[in-house]
């Protein structure tokens, strides 16, 4: 069981890392929100379920441990509700502020992100 926990948490940390790299490497505002919003959700799901499993498998199935596991799962649920909404709101704000999405064509009179 410990191996499963380790695998889950490692996979979660990998997703977090990939998300962090993506935030730096992606070319513009909107595509950067993609790793920030989505990859982090995946990483959170994996690492938190790993933690919940660890609590249950090492502490035994007592009431207190089950409560802790439920609390950990609640973190995931709330982040799954709020994180996409936050990303949506930020993208919406970007569109309303008039920021055009990045394309591969380099226009001469473009005032977009210079990447």
């Amino acid at each position: 069981m410990t191996i499963v926990c380790i695998l889950l948490i490692t996979a979660g940390i990998f997703f977090f890392f990939a998300g962090a790299v993506g935030v730096i490497r992606f070319p513009d505002f909107y595509s950067r929100l993609h790793p920030a919003g989505m990859i982090d959700s995946m990483g959170l799901l994996l690492s938190m379920s790993g933690l919940a499993l660890y609590v249950l498998s090492h502490g035994g199935l007592t009431g207190a441990n089950i409560l802790t596991a439920i609390k950990i799962i609640l973190i995931v649920i709330f982040v799954y509700i709020t994180s996409p909404t936050a990303t949506h709101a930020i993208v919406d704000a970007g569109i309303r502020a008039g920021l055009a999405p990045w394309t591969k064509k380099i226009k001469e009179k473009s005032d977009d992100d210079p990447h």
Binding site: F78, I81, T82, T85, H88, A89, D92, R96
Partner: peptide
């Protein structure tokens, strides 16, 4: 604009 998603999420949270 109408922001149904944001309003309803906040109403839940």
């Amino acid at each position: 604009p109408q922001q149904l998603i944001i309003k309803n999420t906040c109403r839940i949270v």
